[in-house]
Design a protein around this nucleic acid. Structure first.
Lengths: 350, 350
DNA sequence: TTGTAGGCGTTATCAT
DNA sequence: ATGATAACGCCTACAA
């Protein structure tokens, strides 16, 4: 008994007494073939359980796989659960789907360590992140294949961004139009070395050019200065990961300060942070916005469906994903793109 | 000037004056090589910009790609945003990641139509869904490759399920322990033909064996009968897609019934449905649970972080994903598995 | 309209 | 420890 080898195009050709080229054409170029013969081939294929050309061999031969890889700075587990990242993925998936491509998910860490070069199946890459600095080195990015970066800026690649600085400026200006006794900033991934807590003079910040959080900070600072507040006098706390669990202890540290020191306005760099602050403030009986005003950034649904709604800046992450996908598929010119945002005034900072 | 061909293993071998086999071993089997030579090869590789063996060629040769495909019944866009599906993906991603595999996302529709056989790169498949009936035909499922089905049961494949019927029985029994004037059921994808609204006698239901919604319905019915209620007397509405947008019109139809007919207990087949009902009830000034009691199914976070919290059945979708991934990687025996759930009593139905 | 044959970049088997 | 060589399954000039 012969070993149960998968039937191949060649088997099919032999069985039918035609050449492999003809069978190949039956699948890939219907016009190169008499309809009758094509019918016969497809019929026999089904009979023999031949499912069409093998993707591995085909991609080796043609050099293309119809797979686009998304390199996520964070772990897949995190990214799938994060509202902003998953909206981005939605947008990407929507466009890829519509053009017969599929989506391979890679996490930044794995990409470099575990699967060295294993990502070379993909026809193109979309990199998303607050990427860890190591990944910014172009040496770690795929060679010879198109890459679009979203929300960070590796040198030499097209990017998709929102206008972070003007956006955070606008929300901060709105917040500061009502005087505050004590302002504080809660930032996301702003320090060079990991720091989940208060930022002091010792902490070195990420390079200004490369991180969207530095841009958002610049917007905050501009608004502060316009109000005559010195940025140095505004305390900052940093969050290492945009999740409730990581956020909560830092927010607690802030809310549990003595009354005189406790901020009454928190400028947060993400909605997740602001929502965490909202939950913890409510637990402590602090009234929002009377005792504590809050602003976020992102405009995720969760912040708008609840009461009070978040004052924030809405970015269209789905569209960001669509843009990146179109660029990588060559449906849009690969020119760095800047999307705009919308100020959303909710009840947390009217 | 020669065309800028990507450097290959063979180039590298020629450059170094060693055989391709040796170079290959330098990357794949360090122990088959003197460390000195290996160093030299790796060094030269870096110098020439060779990123390691090409994944396409490697997978053709070895037959394995370290890619696992997830076939999602719904569109990717929907699945990524749905809490249950994305938790499942988290669990899958977690295990795959830990074992050096990557995740290819396929949508059910695309799988069969657009990308015929293009999925044959994957080493294995995890199919998730309320799959459209057409996909249940084994002819459309990948041949010769392991497949694990989650939340549906194609004949002949191992599955991962929760105990739907006992779970819905438990939550319904709890709800019915307080007498209700008028009970109604809001189901999800229960009818053979699409139906977003009231289910009447004319509607044919999906086959009982194959759909988790039929199982959940059976649990509801059992609890009703135990209370002396005839299932025929309990009106049912059906929802076609588990999103707020699709849900809302149906729920509105229910809530806007004349007071005498309006149900005061809604047994919902998903938390999303129950949350939609909650939102719309609040908008109408209906008090929950005084005027309307609600139960859900799934136990998603959104239902537990709000007030009132949902009474529901919590399933561990992350663990479901982990199980499926372990099975597909051969880390767990490929035996159909049944996970259990936990009754969660919130304020929507105390 | 159909057939022939070379090669895509690797890895496994067998020698040496 | 290292080298030669034959597949892996397919596509595509080119020839017939």
């Amino acid at each position: 008994m012969p070993p149960p080898r998968r039937t191949t195009l060649k088997d099919l050709a032999r069985e039918l007494g035609v050449s492999t080229a003809t069978v190949s054409n039956a699948f890939n170029r219907p016009d190169q073939l008499s309809p009758r013969l094509r019918e016969r081939i497809l019929g026999e294929a089904k009979r023999l359980g031949y499912r069409g050309p093998d993707a591995k061999a085909r991609s080796l031969r043609t050099g293309r796989s119809r797979i686009i890889a998304v390199i996520l700075a964070e772990s897949l587990t995190y990214s799938i659960n994060d509202a902003v990242a998953s909206e981005l993925l939605s947008g990407i998936a929507e466009v890829l789907d519509a053009h017969g491509h599929t989506l391979l998910l890679l996490s930044g860490r794995q990409h470099i360590s575990q699967a060295p070069g294993s990502s070379s199946i993909a026809d193109g890459f979309i990199a998303y992140g607050l990427m860890p600095p190591s990944l910014m080195v172009s040496a770690d990015l795929p060679a010879q294949r198109p890459l679009v970066a979203v929300d960070f800026s590796p040198a030499g690649y097209p990017t998709v961004h929102i206008d972070n600085e003007p956006s955070s400026y606008r929300v901060a200006r709105h917040a500061l139009s009502t005087p505050a006794r004590q302002v504080a900033i809660v930032s996301l991934r702003l320090t060079e070395a990991p720091c989940n807590g208060r930022i002091t003079a010792e902490h070195e910040l990420l390079p200004a050019e490369r991180s969207i959080t530095r841009s958002r900070l610049a917007g905050f600072h501009q608004a502060l200065e316009e109000r005559g507040l010195a940025p140095e006098d505004v305390p900052m706390w940093n969050i290492e990961e945009n999740t409730y669990e990581v956020c909560a202890p830092v927010i607690e540290e802030i809310l549990d300060l003595p009354d005189a020191e406790r901020p009454d306005l928190l400028l947060c760099m993400s909605d997740r942070i602001a929502l965490t602050a909202l939950t913890l403030a409510e637990q402590r009986g602090l009234r929002v916005p009377e005792d504590l005003r809050l602003t976020g950034f992102d405009g995720i649904a969760e912040g708008q469906y609840r009461a009070p709604r978040l004052t924030t800046v809405r970015q269209d992450s789905v569209e960001k994903g669509r843009m990146a996908a179109r660029m990588i598929l060559g449906l849009a010119p690969s020119e760095s793109t800047l999307l705009h945002t919308e100020l959303v005034i909710g009840e947390t900072c009217p």
